[in-house]
């Protein structure tokens, strides 16, 4: 079980690896598409890498609901708790 801060830091690392964006720019209120300019293929790569890193499953139909970084952090935290 990781804290929200740990999940955010891990997610920022994955986003950095995929897109080159500075990890500190990956903040809770940032939108993946609007603010971080992440396209659908990058998003799926980030999702797959996050599943491996956090040991959770993020169903494809759930991905469209993950609009912001915060949405993803909450989902991962919830999935880890379940």
């Amino acid at each position: 079980m990781a804290s929200n801060e740990e999940i955010l830091a891990g997610l920022a690392e994955i986003v950095n690896e995929e897109t080159g964006l500075a990890p500190e720019s990956v903040e809770m209120d940032k939108s993946f598409t609007e603010d971080l300019d992440i396209d659908s293929i990058s998003m799926m790569t980030i999702v797959v890498n996050a599943e491996e890193k956090f040991g959770v499953r993020i169903p494809d139909e759930e991905v469209k609901n993950l609009k912001t970084v915060g949405d993803a952090v909450s989902f991962i935290a919830g999935a880890q708790a379940a």
Partner: peptide, 11 residues
């Protein structure tokens, strides 16, 4: 083969 279809990246 090692990790399953989910890990085959979209690119």
């Amino acid at each position: 083969k090692e990790k399953g279809p989910r890990r085959v990246l979209p690119m």
